[in-house]
């Protein structure tokens, strides 16, 4: 009984090796995604030139123009717009949930807010078209398919990300910090503003960056609301086209260099997303 049955030890080895292969599969998939998007997208950078793609203003892929500069700017514009709307609202919610709400209310509010994350982006897009676009058209002018409408919808869509990560980082601030502050005679808000939030700031920042990542990668809602015009918006009521929108609108029918141009768009998007994720992870790791 002391020495292990031979078959058992072989089985243990097989299991371990199989599990190792399984674990490595994620890396393989990541590698494949990178490689295939790069293989398709890079040749065009060499052919047309990095400058003419990244800083080119004209997108007319069937005529040899692959400029995606307006889309890069537009992607960042809607993302910052979403952040202006989503960040204060999301952070307030997180503070409320962590510091003010009673236990029972928290039990209802927290899952309710997380369910907001489960609603598909096409549904947000649809409701945006039906309810937000007409309001913008009525009160601000333009067609309503615009930077401001897209920012509002994206701002709502990133709320769950911002709330749940900010909430976690506020909750992870040790109780003793708060007690120390109260002992000095600070009010609840003074404690939150001067002690809790500064202590939780890297996690809160990470929640904003992850929210940005979600907004910049969002596709279906955006193509329904943004209007998809090929120029840099100069006004909040102007329509715009994002990097994601460019891919989604044209992939189904693009061929030849046109299709390669969409993969070049994909490379730029991939780089932006990886950079944001890296920044966010850095923030989360520094969290206390």
């Amino acid at each position: 009984m002391v020495h292990m049955n031979r078959w058992v030890s072989i089985r243990e080895k097989i299991v371990k090796n199989t599990l190792t292969v399984f674990a490595l599969s994620s890396l393989l998939f990541l590698f494949l995604i990178f490689i295939f998007i790069l293989i398709e997208g890079l040749p065009l950078f060499l052919k047309v030139g990095l400058k003419n793609i990244i800083f080119g203003f004209k997108w007319a892929p069937t005529k040899g123009y692959f400029g995606i500069f307006p889309m890069i700017i537009s992607s960042f514009l809607v993302t910052f717009g979403a952040l202006i709307i989503g960040a204060p609202l999301g952070l307030s919610c997180a503070i409320y949930l962590a510091e003010y709400s009673g236990k029972r209310l928290k039990m209802i509010l927290k899952p309710a807010l997380e369910l907001l994350a489960g609603i598909p982006s096409v549904v947000y897009g649809f409701l945006g078209v039906i309810y937000i676009v007409p309001i913008v058209r009525e009160y601000l002018g333009g067609s309503g398919f615009s930077l401001i409408s897209t920012s509002i919808v994206l701002g709502i869509m990133i709320l769950p990300t911002i709330i749940s990560i900010s909430f976690d980082s506020i909750m992870s601030v040790p109780r003793s910090y708060r007690e120390g502050s109260y002992a000095m005679g600070a009010t609840k808000w003074q404690t939150i503003f001067k002690v809790v939030l500064p202590a939780a700031r890297s996690g809160i920042l990470a929640s904003f960056i992850l929210g940005m990542g979600r907004a910049i990668g969002e596709t279906m809602a955006v193509i329904m609301i943004a209007g998809n015009a090929l120029k840099i918006p100069t006004n909040i009521t102007d329509p715009l086209r994002t990097l994601t929108g460019n891919i989604a609108l044209e992939l189904a029918y693009a061929t030849g260099d046109h299709r390669l141009g969409l993969f070049s768009t994909g490379i730029v998007l991939l780089i932006i997303i990886m950079a944001l994720n890296y920044l966010a992870n850095f923030g989360i790791k520094r969290r206390i």
Binding site: T244, I247, F263
Partner: peptide
């Protein structure tokens, strides 16, 4: 972190 449109691509 990769957005779904890139999975589509």
């Amino acid at each position: 972190g990769i957005p779904s449109i890139l999975y589509g691509l």
